[in-house]
Structure formats: structure tokens, C-alpha cells
């Protein structure tokens, strides 16, 4: 009898393990955040990795297969995944994750976005009407998104609502302790002028008080011409920046050229979890980012 009960318990627990909420995260940072909050209650699939440009991903069959099984899609929004996610969500045949359902979550709804264009015209490049979507590099945004995500997970999986709340509290406590530490470490970066390869770091720059003096793209998403790079170089001589920032997935060409010509370091930042060997989770992402920035300052 006892043995039977034990077996039953085992079966039930196995069933419970299978019943974990399946989360389809578009980007590594959202996958990591869902994991931090959900713990064992969630099974996270991350659609892209740090070496992919999140804007230029194919609506691959594997993504459709995963979206079909998901109970919750966690996306950035603000137009970042517009080239592939709408097709994946619509063709998944999964009613739970359609836009407007609790199973569809866009992080952009919960943060104050920078660089919201006053005029939307593609003459300005690949502009996002919803503003700059790379807001994960300000850890305070992760707190806001995390809070909303915990509430959403609780909404979808009411039985484990307390666990999500606790998961978020634990994450938030750790994050709130870490933020002042990073800010203190990054104090020497205040006011430091930098050049960015793409407008990927606006939130990081705003958070740490750095100063973006130039972009190596004439327009967002447009590859620089040699003429444009020379122009930036000329400006660099007049108003010198201390380093060039590039995300791990971006082509090193333009920043390497500028680094050579201007004799300033090109700093590769992880941009998201997994972008560098050091950026293993959301905390080491910022540890590594700040460390790399400080190294660039030397």
C-alpha cells in the first residue's frame, strides 16, 4: 500500500513537472527573466540567441513548432520582432498566444521607451514607431518587466501564483541590491563620450550617464558607407569619444575600422544573456557589461 502511494506520489509529481508553464521567449533576456521568476514552474524555450540580430530572424519551422506548444509568449514588442513573430504567432494554430490573449506578453508595454520618433518615415531608416526597443540594458526596466511578467504568469497558472510572486520578490531583491553596486562600479563612466555602432545601447548609456556622440550607422539599420565613416572620424577628431560600443551579434567591420583610425578601443558588449562567455544570466550580464566598459576606459 505504502509502495503504491509512493508510486502515485511519483506519478503526480511527474505530472506536475510536465505541467510546467511552457514559455516561448523571443530573446535571451526574456527567457532568463522568465526562468528567474518561474523557476521550476516554467519550461522556457528561447527563440533566438545572443549572436542573432533579433530584428532579422526567419520564421523558422522550429519556431512554429515551439509556439504551437507554448502557453505564454514573452516578446519585446515595439516593432523589434515585427519581421517574424506575427507570422509565428498566427500560424502556430495556438489560440492561447494570440495578441490580446493573456498568453501574449510584450515587455515594451511596461517601460518608458526612449527615442520615440516624432515623425515615422522610413527616410530615417528602420525606425520603430514604438521607440527604441533595446531597453533590457537598463536593469531598472527588468524590474518593471519582471513585476508584470510575474503577474502574468500568476494569471495563467493561478495554482502557482504565490510561487511567481515569491520568485519575483527574490529576483527583485537581488536586482535592487545589485543596481547600486553596478552604479558605483560604473561611476568613472559618467559623462564619458562614446560612439555606438547601432542604437543598441541608448538605455545603458542613459542609465550610466555616458554620452553618445555618434552612431556608426547613418540611419538605423543602414550599413555605413566609407564616406559616412570618414565624416564620423572627422567629428571624432573635433569631439573625441573614448570608446566604440558594439553588440556581440553586430559585424565588427565598422567599429574595428573606427577603432583603428581613431585609436580608441572598440568594446564588445554582450547585449544580452549569452553574448559573451561571462554573461551567463541577467546579473552577470551587467557585471560583464560594466567590467568591459571600465576596461575600455583604461
Amino acid at each position: 500500500m505504502k509502495r503504491l502511494l509512493a508510486l502515485l506520489c511519483l506519478l503526480v509529481s511527474a505530472g506536475a513537472a510536465q505541467a510546467a508553464v511552457k514559455v516561448f521567449a523571443t530573446l535571451p533576456e526574456w527567457g532568463a527573466l522568465a526562468q528567474e521568476i518561474g523557476g521550476d514552474q516554467v519550461k522556457v524555450y528561447t527563440a533566438t540567441h545572443a549572436l542573432q540580430d533579433p530584428h532579422r530572424v526567419d520564421a523558422k519551422p522550429s519556431l512554429l513548432a515551439q509556439a504551437r506548444q507554448a502557453q505564454l509568449v514573452v516578446a519585446t514588442g515595439a516593432g523589434l520582432e515585427v519581421g517574424w513573430l506575427p507570422v509565428v504567432v498566427r500560424d502556430s494554430g495556438n489560440a492561447a498566444i494570440q495578441v490580446g490573449q493573456p498568453g501574449y506578453f510584450e515587455a515594451a508595454a511596461y517601460v518608458q521607451r526612449l527615442e520615440v520618433p516624432a515623425a515615422v518615415d522610413r527616410i530615417h531608416g528602420d525606425v520603430h514607431p514604438g521607440g527604441n526597443p533595446h531597453f533590457q540594458l537598463d536593469p531598472r526596466n527588468l524590474l518593471k518587466v519582471g513585476e508584470a511578467l510575474a503577474a502574468r504568469l500568476a494569471d495563467i497558472d493561478r495554482a502557482n501564483a504565490a510561487a511567481y510572486a515569491a520568485g519575483y520578490q527574490a529576483f527583485a531583491a537581488k536586482m535592487r541590491a545589485a543596481i547600486p553596486r553596478w552604479e558605483k562600479m560604473a561611476a568613472p563612466l559618467r559623462g564619458v563620450p562614446v560612439i555606438v555602432q547601432h542604437k543598441s545601447f541608448s538605455y545603458l548609456i542613459a542609465w550610466l550617464g555616458m554620452k553618445e556622440v555618434a552612431t556608426l550607422e547613418p540611419k538605423p539599420g543602414v550599413e555605413p558607407t566609407s564616406g559616412y565613416l570618414s565624416e564620423v572620424l572627422a567629428r571624432q577628431r573635433a569631439q573625441p569619444a573614448r570608446m566604440i560600443l558594439r553588440a556581440a551579434y553586430q559585424n565588427e567591420g565598422p567599429s574595428a575600422w573606427m577603432a583603428r583610425e581613431a585609436k580608441i578601443p572598440a568594446v564588445v558588449l554582450p547585449f544580452t544573456v549569452g553574448g559573451t562567455p561571462g554573461a551567463k544570466d541577467l546579473f552577470s550580464l551587467f557585471d560583464d557589461t560594466v567590467a568591459r566598459l571600465l576596461k575600455g576606459l583604461e
Binding site: P61, S62, L64, A65, Q66, R68, Q69, D91, S92, G93
Partner: peptide, 12 residues
């Protein structure tokens, strides 16, 4: 009518 299988392998 289309049906997508709930499997990791994409099957439609």
C-alpha cells in the same frame, strides 16, 4: 484546414 502537431519537430 491546417493542423500543426504539438511536437518539437515541425509537422503541419
Amino acid at each position: 484546414v491546417k493542423w500543426l502537431a504539438p511536437t518539437d519537430l515541425f509537422l503541419e
